[in-house]
Amino acid sequence: MKDLNLKQQAYDYLKTKILNCEIKPGEYISEKDILESAEIGRTPFREAIIMLQAEHLVEVRPRHGTFSTRLTRTDVIEVFSMRKMLEPVAVFTYLNRIDVSKLLENDRLMERLSKNAEEVPASELCKTDMAFHSFFIENSGNSRLSRLLNPVFQDAYRISMFNNWFTNTRGRTWKETYDHHHLILQAIFKEDKQEIVSTYNTHLNYYLASALATIDLYEKEHGSD
Rank of each mutant, 00 (worst) to 15 (best):
N5D: 15
Y178I: 13
G41D: 06
M51T: 15
F67W: 13
V76P: 01
V100F: 07
N150S: 10
V60R: 11
K24S: 06
L212Y: 06
I49R: 02
D75I: 13
H180L: 08
K7P: 12
V60K: 11
V197L: 09
I77W: 14
M161Q: 02
Y13T: 01
M82H: 09
T169E: 06
Q9T: 10
S68R: 06
F153Q: 03
R46I: 11
L71G: 03
E191Q: 12
Y11H: 14
Y13M: 00
A38K: 10
F67L: 09
S114R: 06
N201Y: 05
I49S: 00
D192M: 04
I215M: 05
S198H: 05
E87N: 08
S30W: 08
L104G: 08
L19R: 06
Y94A: 08
K15L: 04
P121Q: 13
L35C: 00
H56W: 15
E87A: 11
K193M: 06
L6Y: 07
A48S: 05
V152E: 00
E176D: 11
E195T: 12
I184E: 01
K15S: 07
G171A: 08
N201M: 04
S68Y: 03
H56K: 15
A10D: 01
N168G: 10
E105G: 06
G223P: 14
N201R: 06
A211Q: 03
S123V: 12
A48H: 04
S210L: 05
D12A: 03
E221V: 13
P44T: 13
T43M: 08
F153V: 08
N106V: 05
M85A: 06
T173L: 02
A90L: 13
Y13C: 00
G65A: 09
T199C: 05
D155Y: 09
A209P: 01
E105P: 02
A131F: 09
Q9C: 10
H222V: 10
L149V: 02
T72H: 01
K32E: 05
K190I: 10
E36S: 09
L57I: 04
G171I: 04
A54K: 14
D129W: 09
I196Y: 11
N96P: 01
V100S: 09
F162A: 00
S101L: 06
E105C: 04
P25K: 14
K15H: 08
S123W: 08
T93S: 08
